[in-house]
Design a binder for these strands. Structure first.
Lengths: 153, 153
DNA sequence: AGCAATTTAATTGCGAACAATACGTTATTT
DNA sequence: AAATAACGTATTGTTCGCAATTAAATTGCT
């Protein structure tokens, strides 16, 4: 007879590990980004905007899996620190278009360099990075499948 | 001449992946725990308390790497849902001792079973779980080393 | 074409979590 | 007894999800 008992311990350990690792990762990025008055989520948003701007709030939200209720205040903070401009579309007055400021364009490489240097200090080998990326992708695929099943969309 | 250019893309990708994977994991746990009016961080705290209670706020914070400023409101919510009792120590009136309620003890196995079932649906092989655990441990070790260097303690 | 109903986009408000800081009370140390 | 340390609480700012609201655009019907 096979063992049908749930492996409580391993699940709990995974849960715990992910929780604390995520917090440490936040701290790492917070430190890396502090010279630019950017928070971790703000940086993620800027990463997307550096690549795809201009974007509407809705489009940005699709990239980040965030709804506008979360993005609006975040974007206002980015605007107040002069990273982005927000203006309503002339074609469709409902949508707000996010554009990069001149400052954001000029300082992009400084931010990248800083983050890159912090990563260097982390001392992850390319193999470790690749393994991490792959592991996360695997877990994420399972999570996507689960969440699709359990959320009426 | 070796390539000294920073691998921006890979770092950004890692950063982005971790960000979104973490959110999906939160969602997964939120769904798993919703029948018990427990949030993910509250569950993490309960995991620790089921194993080590009674604990002072300070001791619990050491397990979770959280300070009392974060824990106090969280513990009040747990208390209001009758998961724990909070009372000041007679020996040292500064410390608050957290104890499990009868309900928490009785319902422990139900919570474990529910989480375990949700994990089953996730369909992670033992190999995938182990790989995940190992990867996280590796990254975490690097992060610990980094954060030690960069935070005056 | 013109009006009503529906859909879509963004904002606002609420509760929870987290970090950082300041504050007040209680112990300990000198 | 006074200074210092430890501990928990309160406060502020950011993030996140969800629900309700407002405004604009689209669709459907007559």
């Amino acid at each position: 007879m096979p063992n049908t008992q749930p492996p409580i311990q391993l699940n709990s350990q995974l849960c715990f590990q992910l929780y604390t690792a995520n917090k440490k990762f936040n701290k790492f990025y917070q430190d890396a980004l502090s010279p630019f008055s950017l928070t971790y989520p703000q940086y993620i948003a800027m990463l997307t905007l550096w690549q795809y701007a201009p974007l509407s709030v809705k489009e940005l939200g699709n990239h980040l899996h965030l709804d506008s209720g979360t993005l609006t205040p975040l974007l206002k903070r980015l605007e107040s620190h002069n990273w982005i401009k927000r203006e309503r579309s002339h074609k469709d007055e409902r949508t707000v278009i996010i554009q990069l400021t001149h400052m954001a364009v000029t300082n992009r490489d400084s931010v990248f360099k800083r983050v890159s240097n912090c990563f260097k200090v982390l001392n992850l080998t390319p193999q470790e990075k690749a393994a991490c990326s792959e592991t996360i992708a695997t877990i994420e695929a399972h999570l996507d499948h689960y969440n699709e099943q359990h959320n009426a969309n």
